[in-house]
């Protein structure tokens, strides 16, 4: 066990006019996750602490937070990985804070919906499944891993400065369908992304790629979409 100083961002819209930080001294195992520490605070110290969590196993994408200044999933971040006994947890940037770590995800999901994140193919259904070669499936494999946690979009300085920018997560999910050989909606999606608030707001900063808890090569996916728009080819 080791002593951990956990500093938490706090904001209660009913009682606070501005945010503040609360500090808690906790005992933790090196293999405890930051989410475990927050559960401990909520369960034993301050029940009013608010944060999103669901699966707690890196799949649902609910617990994206800024941990020691960097976007991470609280459920995938071990105390020993942070290499310090002082841990600061804050909400992700660029979205309105509703309470403590809970942010308003509506603008994020509005951008996601804009790129038609669903399969489009009006051709008659085949008798069995739609076949796809291993190579064609491989083409968009990386971007299928997105869990919509928002860690990428809220780490992006272009998004911080303008929330009309569609953001890395929406582009990743567009990429997943644009490069799917069975899908027929690529041209429409590319048109949506070829907008002043589309892919060209990406300044190749790489914060999204660094922040992604699923290790998706996000900047590369955005680059491929940019290239597809510029050349009009998916090759």
């Amino acid at each position: 066990m080791q002593k951990i100083t956990l500093k938490l961002f706090r904001y209660n819209p009913e009682t606070d006019t501005k945010p503040h930080y609360d500090t808690f001294e906790l005992e933790a195992e090196p293999t405890d996750r930051v989410l475990d520490l927050m559960e401990k605070v909520k369960g034993y110290h301050d029940g009013s602490l608010s944060f999103r969590r669901s699966c707690a196993h890196g799949v649902c994408g609910s617990c994206a937070m800024r941990i020691n200044g960097q976007n991470m999933l609280a459920c995938k971040t071990l105390v020993q990985d942070l290499k310090t006994s002082r841990i600061t947890v804050e909400p992700i940037l660029g979205l309105s804070v509703l309470k403590d770590m809970i942010v308003d995800m509506d603008p994020f999901f509005d951008s996601y919906k804009k790129v038609m994140p669903f399969f489009v193919n009006d051709e008659p259904k085949p008798a069995q499944e739609r076949h796809q070669s291993i190579e064609d499936r491989e083409r968009f494999d990386d971007t299928t891993k997105c869990i919509l946690c928002g860690a990428c979009t809220t780490s992006c300085p272009s998004f911080w400065s303008n929330d009309e920018y569609i953001g890395p997560a929406a582009i990743v999910n567009a990429h997943r369908f644009i490069f799917d050989s069975r899908d027929k909606g690529a041209a429409e999606r590319l048109q949506i992304l070829n907008d002043q608030f589309g892919v060209y707001r990406c300044r190749t900063i790489f914060n999204c790629t660094v922040a992604c808890p699923r290790e998706i090569q996000i900047t590369q996916a955005i680059g491929e979409v940019k290239k597809a728009i510029a050349t009009g080819s998916l090759d």
Binding site: Y11, P13, P19, R66, N68, G69, Q70, L93, G94, L95, S96, V97, L98, D104, P107, S155, P157, W160, S161, D163, R203, T204, I205, F206, N207, V210
Partner: peptide, 25 residues
């Protein structure tokens, strides 16, 4: 009331994006 989404210059600078982010700045 929800807190404004605005990310100021210094708040943004505190984000630990590492080498690539500093190269951009």
């Amino acid at each position: 009331m929800a807190l404004n989404r605005k990310v100021g210059f210094f708040k943004g600078l505190k984000y630990k994006g590492g080498g690539p982010m500093w190269a951009w700045i």
